[in-house]
Amino acid sequence: MADWFSENLVSILNGFAIGSLLFILAVGLSIVFGMMGVLNLAHGAFYLVGTYLAYSLLDDGVTWGGFLGALALAAVFGLVAGGALSVMTEPLAKRPILDQALLTLGVSLIVAEVLSIIYGNDVYSVAPPPGLDDRVDVGDGSLPVYRLALIGIGLVLALIVYLVVEKTSVGALVRASVADREMVSAMGIDNRKVKVAVLGIGSALAMVAGVLGTPVYGVDPGLDESVLLLALIVVVIGGLGSVKGALIGALVIGQVDSLGRALLPELASFILFGALAVVLIVRPRGLFGPRKVAS
């Protein structure tokens, strides 16, 4: 057992790092969907914008100033983009959920195309900021320090999101909206403003995840679709509108992906969807999803 652990510690830690990144990406998607009934398929494109932001600011040499600047810009751009998307979906608010999803898919395609026109279709890599660009020995292998830092960042963000959602009055409003948003509006609260705020913050987290993920996954025009798919799997496994669900779902998928690749490389691409299928069969509303999903 100790041998096995030592052999696979790198994969396990790697799984936690991927899980952290996935949580940051998926929690916004989950709350926006669970709370406002908007399935934001542009979420992956916002991640992609984050990676190109990081690339633009860090291409000439990675500095802490550039890295933190990219994070700050990503947060601001994300807020604006999410707010704009919220306004765009508003005229479709009374239409079926897929009409809104189609709109966000269109936005996603346009964003990805514009990025491809500006930056071309080449794949780039960006180094972690100074001090985090070494490797450390763990168990029988070694791991980039940056991935350990990513675990820390993910845990801190998870804690902040959890405290805000579970312990503050703003969080109570979010949970009430997930449970029954019609009754929230019957209290005199304008759902549209709540939606702008939530979609803005969710999109900011997606772009921030893009910056944070760049030293791991690099810059690649196809990333928007692959990260969106991963985030959707996390949301489905964790359950809609649940912070705890997004965290557990992200950690599970991080481990399944990382350990799966290490232990069963030939089944790696299959094993994620296997995990998804198992959860859906055993618990169709996800691990922490609401009993009744808002229509």
């Binding site: 109570a172 949970r175 009430a176 997930v178 449970a179 029954d180 019609e182 009754m183 509006s185 019957a186 209290m187 005199g188 609260i189 304008d190 759902n191 609401p290 009993r291």
Partner: peptide
């Protein structure tokens, strides 16, 4: 008018089935 406008005008609802927010 939208429900929030009607609510702010001074109307409140005690709905069928109560519709309290279960996790709060």
């Amino acid at each position: 008018k939208r429900p929030d406008v009607i609510a702010r005008a001074g109307v409140a609802l005690v709905p069928q089935g109560r519709r309290t927010w279960a996790p709060l």
